[in-house]
């Protein structure tokens, strides 16, 4: 049987070879969906370690990106044995890079970490118009909307998007978090968001706090 603690540690260490070997060996035993679910949980805990090391400045953004890649590789390997298990979701988030901005690295890191933490993540892509945000919120009724941007113009687009969400009568049904290089407390207030972050791990914590 697979050593779950060792797997969690290997994910925390971002030790790709060990992780892949363990998962492949595990899948070869033709396990049940419930057993596979435990593996997913062990990997999520490993991602928790990654997040902690990031906060302690032992890991940096490059390591988070690599962690996200490892995790999606792992999930892909597990998919054949996971198929009919209903997974419990902790909440749902609509994310996108705001209008006029095409930068998606930060958003993708946040997205993969949120997914790893058990959120349903609805990804709108880049250069997303305020109306596209509104439509998606109407459709999937998420608890949280995450807006990302790197350019200084993103601040203005974020403001427009919050305005559109408010005008559609949806502002009270969602929490809004903004992330990216140009955001700070003043910008957050002006935009009318509930929280801001320049750090994906910290942003995730905020979101977890909202849905717990």
């Amino acid at each position: 049987m697979i050593d779950l603690q060792a797997l969690t540690q290997a994910v925390g260490d971002l030790d790709e070879k060990t992780i892949i070997t363990m998962i492949e060996d595990f899948v070869a035993t033709n396990p049940s969906g419930e057993e596979a679910q435990k593996i997913v949980f062990a990997c999520q805990q490993g991602m928790g370690i990654v997040g902690e090391l990031f906060e302690k400045n032992e890991y940096y953004v490059g390591d988070l990106i690599f962690a996200g890649e490892l995790l999606s590789k792992t999930i892909d390997l597990l998919k054949p044995v996971l198929n009919d298990v209903a997974t419990e979701k902790v909440g749902s988030i609509v994310i996108g890079t705001v209008q006029g901005d095409l930068h998606d690295i930060g958003k993708n890191i946040f997205g993969s970490m949120a997914e790893a933490a058990g959120f349903d993540v609805y990804e709108l892509g880049v250069d997303v118009s305020p109306s596209a945000f509104v439509e998606k919120v109407k459709e999937v009724k998420p608890q949280i909307v995450g807006m990302s941007g790197v350019l200084t113009l993103a601040i203005d687009s974020m403001k427009e998007t919050v305005k559109a969400i408010t005008e559609a009568g949806l502002r009270d049904s969602v929490k809004i978090i903004i992330g990216g290089n140009p955001v700070n407390e003043d910008a957050c207030k002006q935009i009318g968001a509930d929280a801001f972050t320049t750090n994906a791990a910290e942003g995730l914590k905020t979101c977890q706090g909202w849905v717990s």
Binding site: G100, I105, D127
Partner: peptide, 13 residues
Amino acid sequence: IVMSSSGFMQHPD
């Protein structure tokens, strides 16, 4: 390098 909807030249990953 592409132009975004708002006319700015940008660099997607």
